[in-house]
C-alpha cells in the first residue's frame, strides 16, 4: 500500500497529507489533520455525523476517499465560527437547546449552513427533509428545527 501526496484547501488553508488509497476523508481529517469535529457514527453514510462540505456540496466524509480530495475545497465545523464569533446557527443551537449530547451537532450545523445558503427562508418541511440524513437520537429534532428557523430569521434580518 503506497500513500499519495494530496493537496487541498481545508477551512481556507492549504493542507498537504499522505493518504493511503483506502483511507476515508473522515479519517484523514481526524487523524492526519487533527480536525476531530467530524464524527464517525456509522461509516456508511446513514447518520450524517461526519458531514463536511466538499467543493460546495455537503457530503458524508466517511463516503469520500482522502485521495479524492486532491485540489478540492473542504469545509468542516472547525471553520464555521469566525474566531470567537460564532455563526448565527451555532449561537442559535446554544440558545434554543438544540443539542443534548452534541455528537450529531457538528454535522447538523454544517448541513444546516448549506441549506440556509441555498434557501434563506426554508419551511419546516424543507428543513426536516434537508436534515433527514443527520440522525439525532437525543432531541426528537424539535429544538433543532426551531434553532435553524431562528438562525434563518436572524440571518435574513
Amino acid at each position: 500500500m503506497t500513500g499519495t501526496l494530496v493537496t487541498s484547501k481545508v477551512n481556507g488553508d492549504e493542507v498537504q497529507f499522505i493518504a493511503d488509497p483506502g483511507e476515508t476523508l473522515l479519517d484523514v481529517l481526524r487523524y492526519k489533520l487533527n480536525l476531530m469535529g467530524a464524527k464517525e457514527g456509522c461509516g456508511t453514510g446513514d447518520c450524517g455525523a461526519c458531514t463536511v462540505t466538499l467543493n460546495g456540496r455537503i457530503v458524508c466524509s466517511c463516503l469520500v476517499l482522502g485521495v479524492e480530495a486532491e485540489g478540492a475545497t473542504i469545509g468542516t465545523i472547525e471553520g464555521m465560527a469566525d474566531g470567537n464569533r460564532l455563526h448565527p446557527l451555532q449561537q442559535a443551537f446554544i440558545d434554543h437547546a438544540a443539542l443534548q449530547c452534541g455528537i450529531c451537532t457538528p454535522g447538523i450545523l454544517v448541513a444546516a449552513q448549506k441549506l440556509l445558503e441555498r434557501n434563506p427562508d426554508p419551511t419546516e418541511e424543507e428543513i426536516r427533509y434537508w436534515l433527514a440524513g443527520n440522525l439525532c437520537r437525543c432531541t426528537g429534532y424539535d429544538k433543532i428545527v426551531r434553532a435553524v428557523q431562528a438562525a434563518a430569521a436572524q440571518m435574513r434580518a
Binding site: 453514510g45 446513514d46 450524517g48 458531514t51 466538499l54 456540496r57 455537503i58 457530503v59 458524508c60 463516503l63 469520500v64 448541513a111 448549506k114 441549506l115 434537508w130 436534515l131 433527514a132 440524513g133 443527520n134
Partner: peptide, 9 residues
C-alpha cells in the same frame, strides 16, 4: 437516493 449528503456525490 440517500440523504442530502449522499445526493452531493
Amino acid at each position: 437516493i440517500g440523504s442530502t449528503q449522499v445526493q452531493g456525490r
